[in-house]
C-alpha cells in the first residue's frame, strides 16, 4: 500500500502561526510560526498535536498561510487583498468553530478553490470573547470574479446556511478602522 510509505505532497508549502495577545510586548513579537508543512501527513501530524481553536484563550489566533506570506495585511502579498469573513456568535464556538476551521484548512491545503487557488493567501481564526471570527484571505481584492467564486465555494464547503450572508472586505478598507464600520465589497 503506497499510502503507508510515501508522504503525499501538497501543491504549496504552508506555515502555521500562533498569535497570543500579550500587551506588554510589541504586536509583531506576539506572532510566531509554529511550523511549516508541505505534505498531507505532516499537516495531520500538526493538526492532531495542536490545541483545538476552541480551547485557545481569548485574544489568540491561529493562521495558516502559504510559506513566505505573513498573516498580516501589511505583507506585500496581502496588501492589495482582502478577506472573506465569517462572524460567529458566542454560542457557536463549542458546536461549530473547530469544524469550520478544519474545513477551511482542508480547502486550503487541498487546493479546493480550483483555478482560483492561486488567489488564496491563507486563513485565520480569531478567538474573541465578543465572538470568534474566521477569515479567508485572498491576494487581490480587485479580482471580482475570483473573489466571488472563492466566497461561494467557501460558503458551500463550510455548509453555511443560505440565509446567512458572508461578506468580503478589502484590507485597504479595513486598515485602521473598527470592524463594524468596514463595508463589504461582496457578499454571498
Amino acid at each position: 500500500d503506497p499510502d503507508s510509505v510515501i508522504k503525499h505532497p501538497l501543491q504549496n508549502s504552508w506555515a502555521m502561526w500562533f498569535f497570543k495577545n500579550d500587551k506588554t510586548r510589541d504586536w509583531k513579537d506576539n506572532l510566531r510560526v509554529i511550523t511549516t508543512f508541505d505534505t498531507v501527513e505532516d499537516f495531520w501530524g500538526l493538526y492532531n498535536h495542536t490545541l483545538p481553536a476552541s480551547k485557545l484563550q481569548s485574544g489568540c489566533d491561529y493562521s495558516v498561510f502559504k510559506a513566505g506570506i505573513q498573516p498580516m495585511w501589511e505583507d506585500a502579498q496581502n496588501k492589495k487583498g482582502g478577506r472573506w469573513l465569517i462572524n460567529l456568535n458566542k454560542s457557536q464556538r463549542q458546536p461549530h468553530l473547530d469544524d469550520l476551521w478544519l474545513e477551511t484548512l482542508l480547502c486550503l491545503i487541498g487546493e479546493g478553490f480550483d483555478e482560483y487557488s492561486d488567489d488564496i493567501c491563507g486563513a485565520t481564526v480569531n478567538i474573541r470573547t465578543k465572538g470568534d471570527k474566521l477569515g479567508l484571505w485572498t491576494r487581490d481584492a480587485s479580482r471580482n470574479d475570483a473573489t466571488r467564486k472563492i466566497g461561494i465555494k467557501l460558503k458551500e464547503s463550510l455548509n453555511v446556511p443560505p440565509k446567512i450572508v458572508i461578506g468580503f472586505q478589502a484590507h485597504s478598507d479595513t486598515a485602521g478602522k473598527a470592524g463594524s464600520t468596514v463595508k463589504n465589497r461582496f457578499t454571498v
Binding site: 501538497l10 501543491q11 498531507v40 492532531n48 482542508l106 491545503i109 487541498g110 487546493e111 479546493g112
Partner: peptide, 18 residues
C-alpha cells in the same frame, strides 16, 4: 504543471492511514 489537488474525503482518509 498540474495542480496537486485533494478533496475532503481523500484528506480525511489520509488522516487515518498509518
Amino acid at each position: 504543471g498540474t495542480r496537486i489537488v485533494y478533496d475532503r474525503s481523500r484528506l480525511m482518509q489520509l488522516r487515518n492511514s498509518p
